[in-house]
Amino acid sequence: MLAAEAALKALMLTALAGDKAAYRALLEATGSLLRRYYGRRLAGGVADVEDLVQEALIAIHSKRDTFDTSQPLTPWLYAIARYKLLDHLRRRRIRVTIPLEDAGELLADDESAAADARLDLEKLLANLPAGTQEIIRAVKIEGQTTSEVADRKGKSEIAVRVGLHRGLKALGEKLREGTDRADR
């Protein structure tokens, strides 16, 4: 455990100086740690665990400059992992408050549902920032690849991918909020 801390912290310090190889090694090692951490704590299945691992990796990436280099790394990593776990459980709690008996009504809609869904999607998309909307439209509706979108918009592919991931997540949340409200 102590050896892991020393090795991970060394990678982190090199990564924070801008070293891609060290950063990649760090993220891979952290990915395994996170998979174990979430695997032990979530009964929900592999998909949930992998979602959370990715969520936490993105958080670690975007907040990596909050790490105090005079301190050990693992408490910082696990504090983020724990925060994302609690965040996930809170969202989950919101999700399971949709009463079960309503599920039948949701399924019993007629074929106008598809058209409605398209309209709803547009409405939900309209709530997102313009850049995010464009990425989701291009990739998920028009079927372009993230690297095409990146080239066209003059952004890095990673920025597009993270934007897509975040956008879809926000969309999912909006959808759930909407469903919750409709249920009330």
């Binding site: 801008g18 950063y23 992998e50 990715q54 990796l57 400059d65 790490f67 990673i158 920025a159 991931h165």
Partner: peptide, 23 residues
Amino acid sequence: MQTDDLIANLSSDARPAGWKSAR
């Protein structure tokens, strides 16, 4: 997105970063 792809993408974004600019 696969986690391995995500890691590849994130690590390609490595840049010098630290608390001095973060704060």
